[in-house]
Design a protein around this nucleic acid. Structure first.
Lengths: 207, 207
DNA sequence: GAGGATCGTTCGTCAAGGCGAACGAAACGA
DNA sequence: TCGTTTCGTTCGCCTTGACGAACGATCCTC
């Protein structure tokens, strides 16, 4: 991984973890951490000093970590994971190849259920790519509640204009233009426009 | 760009979390680790001394960790996760739904090579699913030309506000709010804002 | 109650993590 | 060529994690 992702993902841990759990390699994956740190930093196009500054650690420390020397504390690694926008688990867990199966016949059939909610499919996922991109146009009124999708699904929303309450039904977040949110698509979630002319970009990932 | 991310991640949460970006729990979850350690140990019905012995660490150390004091190194936590048969991620991440929010203006801003172009990484891709989501903020002026990425890469752009010329360098297309374009990322492409305050959502896929 | 065994915490010591500063290497420009 | 800037590594110093031993508390049995 890069990193991240998890956005979903991996979420967690869970996810990941899951798997990983049980049999972990006896040795702590310091080398893997070193690799991940450097890869993610380069990926972001940042210098060692810059990342260290943002994470609030010494660049000498980061240098040692990237070279595989050292055994970082949880706080140090956490700060780096936050700065690099990578899930903590992903830094530590050896990136295992995950084979995912997309079952035949699966597909998110999408239709606007409510008049005050319109989603336009911009890019549909080919058989093996698993992401759909929607442009969502919504007006204040009924919220659009979605039943959970397949396990592991993740949704990303970037609000373009207006205001909206988005996220898990339990705990929605108010978004303003430019705000971004990601949440597990396999739990009940909601999209409720708070202003007329609310637009958003929705990226759905299925696994 | 790419980056990673997790944006979503879960988060980072998952772990990681997030990153800097967003606000994950800014603080390292030492309290959560403490709780998890004790819960898992009790679940296994083992004494503190026994777990310490199996993990090869001092029981005093484990005692402190379970009390929330201390900031364990990766090796120490790893040894405990193996002994308790719990994924490392699970120890660190509180097993909760991960919702990640990146507010406008937050996030890892990619510095733009040009002053009039800023891309913010919202979600980065995991190792095998590769997609990065960026919020692009651009001002009229120099165009932002990108060198080709890996073969097979595809970019999707949804314009939120303003106007922009987007697409292959040879044949860019003028986008208005709500417009969408997709083009091969492995050919030279360009993003040129035509109005001040132009925002767009960029989804990169690599293969 | 005294003795023993087990539990988890606290204390003193030592090694290692983390830091700032200095250093060499490489890339520009004058 | 020299000076400047930026990169990443290396070098002492100090703080802190980790250890082992001792300690009080609890729960037994005799």
């Amino acid at each position: 991984m890069d990193a991240g992702d998890d956005a979903n993902g991996n979420g967690g841990a869970s996810g990941t973890g899951g798997a990983g759990v049980s049999r972990q390699p006896g040795r702590a994956p310091l080398a893997a951490i070193a690799e991940s740190l450097q890869r993610e930093r380069r990926r972001a196009g940042l210098s060692l000093a810059e990342v260290a500054r943002r994470a609030g650690i010494a660049k000498s420390t980061l240098s040692q970590l990237e070279s595989g020397t050292g055994n970082p504390s949880v706080e140090t690694l956490w700060a780096l994971s936050v700065t690099l926008n990578v899930s903590f688990a992903q830094l530590v867990d050896p990136p295992r190849p995950r084979v995912r199966v997309v079952r035949a016949g699966e597909g998110v059939a999408f239709a606007a259920e409510h008049a005050d909610y319109v989603a336009t499919l911009l890019a549909s996922s080919p058989p093996h790519a698993r992401r759909d991109i929607f442009l969502v146009s919504a007006e204040p009124g009924t919220a659009r509640e979605s039943d959970p999708h397949e396990p592991g699904a993740i949704e990303h929303v970037v609000l373009s204009t207006g205001r909206a309450l988005v996220g898990l039904t339990d705990d929605p977040v108010e978004l303003r233009p430019g705000d971004y949110i990601a949440y597990p698509g396999d739990e009940p979630h909601v999209f409720r426009a708070l202003e007329p002319g609310t637009f958003a970009v929705l990226v759905q990932e299925h696994h």
